[in-house]
Design a protein around this nucleic acid. Structure first.
Lengths: 193, 193
DNA sequence: ACACTCATGTAAGCTGTTACATGATTAA
DNA sequence: TTAATCATGTAACAGCTTACATGAGTGT
């Protein structure tokens, strides 16, 4: 089915940018958000970590556990931060799925609220377009729609509305944070939107 | 990432059970719901139709277009209906993604409201569990959460609430439909829940 | 001529899962 | 000793997309 998947590589890199972790740590953390974005299987996660290592985007330190098996703690390198930033700078695809949105949200640079706002704004546009398309579907045929189809349409519209509401209130909240921000850099970044 | 995908084969079979269509028809129809469940590429859809044909679950009729290229109209066979029913009868996986829920909704037998209600009820349980899990994540650490993580959590909770609301009101509506149903069979089916 | 929509199909490749394999440590 | 959690890894396979190929009809 269509919809560009977020590269697992960059997502993992983004998580490691926040704090050093082992592969197992990543899996546990993502299990918390399993419903939203899923948790990668070991069969995909560990090879990704190895690939990042070979490209020198992360470094390892083997930490022998005191009362556990030894763990490989990965941390991002300067080259990794650079590659990550380059990836973040290119905006999400127009048809990006919910999962991609949340993934980017999770690895968003929380120091730059301006960037976060831009990300939410892009999502808002996408969801609004989607809702308009669904509305067309509802209005067009109407009578001839099967019960299941009517339900699916109504379901999609309800979720779209909820998402728009959340996006609006969150953007408003973030904007206030930004304006009343004690950090001068944040405010300067804001005017750059 | 984890989460069992719905077999495209059975989904297509379910669509053909509602009305005969060509592969292109299916793609156009699903493009309307693209955001919700995506639309299969030709590279996956056409082979699936061929496979269904080889298993005698569908039949083809080549209709020469008057002012268009010829189309292959597929329709479900008795064996196909049997296979479809067997597949529908086994309940959705516990970790089934939103997409799978909507797909099953679309191909649900609209004659059996009782079955539909059961499907919604299962989904309701899953979403409620999910929300509880997210709540744990929120309550547990709280202070130590990164901004992006707090946002992702809030986003997930907002969507879960919206979905539960929709499910509740839809189930209520369907229940009323069921009780006031003019069709005796529907009522009898209801008592079998 | 050219491009566009309709309509079907094939082949290569990417991404991910499942299943398997290993091994340490803790608790019943 | 048996099972369970922690922790990492490999190999086979499934499913899907992309890119390509074909061809009819329609409009510019």
């Amino acid at each position: 089915m269509s919809g560009g998947t977020v590269s697992l590589q960059f997502f993992v890199l983004g998580l490691l940018a926040q704090r050093p972790m082992s592969g197992y740590d990543i899996k546990r953390f993502l299990n918390t958000l399993n419903w939203l974005i899923g948790s990668p299987s070991g069969g995909s996660l560990y090879p990704v970590l190895r690939a990042l290592l070979q490209e020198d985007l992360v470094a390892v330190e083997v930490v022998p556990g005191l009362d556990r098996p030894p763990r490989k703690i990965y941390s991002i390198t300067p080259a990794g931060r650079q590659a990550l930033q380059a990836w973040i700078d290119q905006p999400a695809a127009a048809n990006a799925p919910l999962k991609a949105f949340v993934m980017r949200l999770l690895i968003a640079d929380s120091h730059s609220i301006a960037r976060l706002l831009a990300h939410l704004e892009r999502r808002r546009k996408q969801v609004a377009d989607h809702r308009a398309k669904l509305r067309e579907g509802t209005g067009a045929i109407d009578e001839r729609l099967d019960l299941g189809q009517r339900l699916a349409l109504g379901y999609g519209l309800a979720l779209a509305k909820a998402e728009l509401d959340w996006l609006d209130s969150t953007m408003e909240w973030l904007s206030e944070e930004l304006l009343s921000g004690e950090d001068g850099q944040r405010v300067r970044a804001a005017s750059a939107i």
